[in-house]
Simulated scan of single mutants.
Amino acid sequence: MDFDLQWLLLGLPVAFALGWLASRLDFRQWKRDERDSPKAYFKGLNLLLNEQQDKAIDAFIEAVQQDPGTSDLHFALGNLFRRRGEYERAVRVHQHLLGRADLAPAERERAQHALAQDFMKAGLFDRAEEAFKALEGTAFGTDARLSLLTLYERSRDWRAAVETARQLESTGAGSFAARVANYWCELALEADARHQPDEAQAALNRAREAAPQAARPLVLAGQRLARQGRHDAALEAWSELMAINPAAFSLVAGDYAASAVACDQQARALERLKSLYARAPSVDVLQALTRLETDPLARRERLVSHLRSQPTLTAALGLLQERMTSERPFSAAEIENLRQAIGTAAKPLQRYRCAACGFEGQHYFWQCPGCLSWDSYPPHRLEDQ
């Protein structure tokens, strides 16, 4: 059959016209999608800034549907789900991102990090640990190790925490010596609970090696020795603590006095405590001094002196107890010191507190200055509750 060139000449313009029309329609659709997607995105951002998270999520879902290839929208949506506590939906969003073959390596690492955070927030520690470990050697490597450290602390996996802290130090993330010392102290307590004293002592030694200036290893060492009846050795451990960290000694001041009485070293312990109190006065050291001091007059004078410098209820109570065991009445100066101590302690309780936001004030407010709520203040002070 002969081919008619006339039909070819007629068909070319028609084909060109149809192609041009199709391209125009695709271009208009693309322009419309491009215009609608940012509009939905900015709408969600505006709602988020106005703390309307439910509506913001709806807007971001709409934006993702209009532009499913934009990873930033997926990240925004996943983070919103996580903040809302909807961890399952956040996981699905980030797993969807990881399943995309066209995702750039940097975005894939970002999605992996977000997924690990989802598992962490959801309390799925096993899956979170696996997800964080998958970030080894990436730009999120240090952040992943820090998160793993928090995970091991929450799950009380102290040996894994020690190893992770050492890895962080080796990468220049800072010093974790104090935290490592605490991890070894926790291991020592666990060993004591299992009645494994040798393992507990070894853990305390490791704690001292990790942070020689740390207070907790010496606190625990003295307490273990006191429980074993080795009060002389306990006093020496706590005396080292007194020299290294005078402020932390307050935690064992009462135990120190008890061990001194148990091994008949009250006089020596009293002199050490007097020297410490002169450098770092505290209520705990004051009570230990009161326990070791045998002269009632000296005890009373020390309590009055403390009340002058630090009007605390504990010192006031100690002075009242001294009066109950003595026939000597209060002097005018002692009564004034007691009044100041009680007044200072009572002042924070003489406030009104907003039931809506907790804002406290010396005066009653009909409208809270903090949250601007009306009638949110109960008509009684804190000390009446």
Results as ranks from 00 to 15, higher is better:
20 W>Y: 13
188 A>C: 00
310 Q>E: 14
70 T>Q: 09
17 A>R: 02
228 Q>R: 13
91 V>R: 05
30 W>S: 11
24 R>S: 11
109 E>F: 00
38 P>K: 08
246 P>G: 01
256 Y>I: 03
144 A>N: 00
177 A>G: 08
229 G>H: 11
169 E>H: 04
198 D>T: 10
255 D>N: 09
32 R>C: 08
112 Q>G: 10
85 G>Y: 01
135 L>R: 05
367 Q>C: 09
128 A>K: 05
274 K>L: 07
252 V>E: 01
35 R>L: 12
334 E>M: 06
319 L>F: 04
343 G>M: 09
134 A>C: 02
23 S>E: 14
15 A>N: 11
212 P>K: 11
50 N>G: 14
336 E>M: 08
290 T>R: 10
349 L>T: 13
292 L>F: 06
207 A>I: 02
363 H>M: 11
253 A>R: 02
353 R>A: 09
177 A>L: 03
37 S>R: 10
199 E>P: 04
104 A>D: 09
51 E>T: 12
127 R>K: 06
304 V>P: 02
108 R>K: 13
266 Q>H: 04
298 A>L: 12
360 E>G: 01
333 A>F: 13
175 S>E: 13
344 T>R: 08
328 R>S: 12
54 D>I: 08
335 I>L: 09
59 A>Q: 02
170 S>T: 13
78 G>P: 01
156 R>P: 07
272 R>A: 11
298 A>E: 15
155 S>T: 15
78 G>V: 09
189 L>C: 09
193 A>C: 10
284 D>V: 00
343 G>V: 03
122 A>S: 08
35 R>P: 07
254 G>H: 03
176 F>Q: 08
135 L>Q: 05
199 E>Q: 06
158 W>N: 14
232 D>E: 12
365 F>K: 05
219 V>Q: 10
111 A>N: 10
258 A>K: 08
14 V>R: 07
114 A>I: 07
266 Q>K: 11
372 L>Y: 05
150 T>C: 11
185 C>E: 05
292 L>N: 00
303 L>Y: 07
122 A>G: 00
105 P>G: 05
16 F>C: 15
175 S>F: 00
98 L>R: 14
247 A>P: 10
269 A>Y: 00
112 Q>E: 07
22 A>N: 06
36 D>L: 04
10 L>S: 06
30 W>E: 15
178 A>F: 11
159 R>S: 14
72 D>E: 13
185 C>Q: 03
330 F>W: 03
264 D>N: 13
340 Q>E: 12
153 E>Q: 15
141 G>R: 14
94 H>A: 03
207 A>P: 00
333 A>R: 09
72 D>G: 12
311 P>A: 12
221 A>Q: 11
81 F>Q: 01
262 A>K: 14
56 A>L: 01
224 R>Q: 10
61 I>Y: 12
350 Q>N: 15
